[in-house]
Amino acid sequence: MATGGRRGAAAAPLLVAVAALLLGAAGHLYPGEVCPGMDIRNNLTRLHELENCSVIEGHLQILLMFKTRPEDFRDLSFPKLIMITDYLLLFRVYGLESLKDLFPNLTVIRGSRLFFNYALVIFEMVHLKELGLYNLMNITRGSVRIEKNNELCYLATIDWSRILDSVEDNYIVLNKDDNEECGDICPGTAKGKTNCPATVINGQFVERCWTHSHCQKVCPTICKSHGCTAEGLCCHSECLGNCSQPDDPTKCVACRNFYLDGRCVETCPPPYYHFQDWRCVNFSFCQDLHHKCKNSRRQGCHQYVIHNNKCIPECPSGYTMNSSNLLCTPCLGPCPKVCHLLEGEKTIDSVTSAQELRGCTVINGSLIINIRGGNNLAAELEANLGLIEEISGYLKIRRSYALVSLSFFRKLRLIRGETLEIGNYSFYALDNQNLRQLWDWSKHNLTITQGKLFFHYNPKLCLSEIHKMEEVSGTKGRQERNDIALKTNGDQASCENELLKFSYIRTSFDKI
Rank of each mutant, 00 (worst) to 15 (best):
G203W: 07
P313S: 10
C286R: 03
E168I: 10
Y259C: 14
R69F: 08
T199D: 14
T250K: 13
H214A: 14
T229G: 03
Y87F: 06
C315A: 09
A198Y: 04
R110P: 01
G262F: 08
S213P: 02
R141K: 02
G111P: 00
L47M: 04
R69E: 06
L90C: 09
K224N: 07
R297G: 08
C255V: 04
E71Q: 04
R110T: 10
F78A: 06
F285L: 08
F205A: 09
C328F: 02
L174G: 13
T320M: 08
I62V: 11
S237E: 07
P70D: 11
K310N: 13
C315V: 03
R208K: 12
P31A: 12
C243F: 01
G192H: 07
N325P: 04
M38D: 00
N325A: 05
R110A: 14
L90H: 00
D165I: 07
N175V: 04
D169Q: 13
L99Q: 00
F73I: 05
N295H: 07
C311Y: 00
P249V: 06
C286H: 01
L120P: 00
I306T: 05
N195W: 14
P316S: 04
C228Q: 02
S112L: 14
L50Y: 03
S161G: 10
I84V: 03
Q61M: 06
H236I: 02
C280A: 01
V206I: 13
D165L: 09
L64M: 02
K310Y: 10
G318L: 02
N117C: 01
N135M: 07
L106V: 02
Q303S: 15
A119N: 02
T68S: 12
N202R: 09
G333L: 14
C182G: 02
E97H: 14
Y134D: 07
N135H: 08
E33H: 11
K310F: 10
L174H: 15
L114W: 01
C264W: 10
H302Q: 14
L260M: 04
G300F: 07
E71W: 02
H48K: 04
P271V: 05
R298K: 07
F275W: 10
D261T: 15
C239N: 01
S98Y: 02
E231K: 08
L90P: 00
E180M: 14
E180L: 15
R69K: 03
E71F: 13
D247M: 05
L63I: 00
W210V: 01
R74W: 04
G58E: 01
W210Q: 02
H302I: 13
V55R: 01
K100I: 08
F115V: 01
S98K: 04
D247E: 07
C53E: 03
D169T: 14
N175P: 07
V93F: 00
A190P: 09
F285W: 05
V108M: 06
T250S: 12
K310G: 15
I306P: 01
F285H: 13
Y134V: 05
F103R: 01
A198N: 06
F258R: 04
I82G: 03
F103A: 00
I82C: 11
D288K: 12
R141A: 02
R69V: 02
N325I: 05
Q299W: 06
R279F: 06
R145G: 00
G183P: 11
I158H: 02
L63G: 00
G37L: 00
L88H: 00
A254L: 09
L128S: 01
D72R: 05
N170D: 08
V265Q: 07
I222S: 13
G111N: 00
I109W: 00
T68W: 03
L81D: 03
P104F: 01
V144E: 00
P316L: 00
C280W: 00
G142P: 00
C53N: 00
E130L: 03
L174P: 09
S161R: 09
D165P: 11
L60T: 04
I306L: 04
F205S: 15
I201V: 13
K310D: 15
P36H: 15
C293A: 08
T211V: 08
G300K: 15
T194H: 13
P187C: 04
T194R: 11
R110I: 13
C235G: 01
Y134R: 12
F283Q: 10
C234E: 01
S244F: 09
E57D: 15
H307K: 05
Y87G: 00
S323I: 09
V265L: 08
V121R: 04
C243Y: 00
S324I: 01
L155N: 03
R145Y: 06
F91H: 01
F275Y: 09
S296F: 08
Y87V: 00
Q299D: 02
L88R: 01
F258P: 00
L164N: 02
D165M: 14
E124I: 04
L155R: 05
N52A: 10
L120T: 02
D178E: 06
E314F: 02
Q303F: 13
R297V: 09
G227P: 06
H48I: 11
I146T: 01
H214I: 07
F73K: 03
I201Q: 08
G58L: 00
Y30A: 14
G192W: 07
L50H: 00
F116R: 00
Q287T: 13
T329L: 08
G37Q: 10
E124Q: 02
C239Q: 10
P70N: 08
S166T: 15
C235F: 03
P187T: 10
P269L: 06
Y272G: 02
I222P: 04
S77G: 13
E151G: 07
V218Q: 10
D169H: 15
I201Y: 09
I62M: 04
E33K: 11
E124R: 01
M137T: 06
N170M: 06
L289M: 13
T107S: 12
Y171R: 03
Y319F: 14
R41I: 00
G183E: 10
K292W: 05
C268Q: 00
E49F: 14
H302E: 09
T320C: 08
I109D: 00
T189M: 07
T85N: 04
N43E: 05
N242S: 11
Q303T: 15
D86F: 00
N149R: 00
N308D: 12
K191H: 08
L44Q: 12
F116A: 00
S225Q: 10
V200Y: 05
L174N: 05
C228D: 03
N170R: 11
H28M: 09
A198Q: 04
Q303C: 14
N149V: 03
H290I: 03
N150R: 14
E97L: 11
K100H: 15
S284V: 05
K80A: 07
S324W: 04
R297F: 07
T140Y: 03
K217I: 14
G262S: 08
M83N: 00
E238T: 04
I56Y: 00
L99A: 04
Y304S: 06
F283S: 08
Y259D: 07
N295S: 09
H212M: 12
P271E: 10
R145K: 07
H302P: 10
D184Y: 08
H59D: 01
D165S: 14
G203K: 15
V265K: 06
C315N: 02
F123D: 00
D178S: 09
D177L: 05
N42T: 01
F285V: 04
C35L: 00
C219V: 01
I82K: 07
H290M: 09
Y273F: 13
L60K: 01
K191S: 13
Q204R: 10
I109L: 14
S143L: 08
H226S: 10
D169S: 14
T267P: 02
D75G: 02
F205K: 07
Y171S: 14
C268E: 02
D247W: 12
G32T: 04
C153S: 13
P334G: 08
K100P: 00
D159V: 01
S161M: 14
L114N: 01
V55Q: 04
N282D: 04
E97Y: 12
V305F: 06
G241T: 06
I312Q: 03
L102R: 01
A156P: 04
K80Y: 15
R46E: 03
S296T: 14
V200A: 09
L81G: 00
D177S: 04
M38V: 04
P249K: 04
D169I: 14
D101S: 14
T45C: 13
I109M: 05
V200Q: 07
E97T: 13
I163P: 00
P336Y: 12
E97G: 10
C182K: 05
D39E: 04
F73G: 02
L96T: 02
C209M: 02
T320P: 02
F115Y: 00
E57Q: 15
T85Q: 13
P187H: 05
H291E: 11
I84A: 00
N170P: 06
N42A: 02
F205G: 08
C331W: 12
S161Q: 13
F283G: 10
A119P: 01
K80T: 10
E130P: 00
N43T: 10
Q245G: 11
C264I: 00
E314T: 10
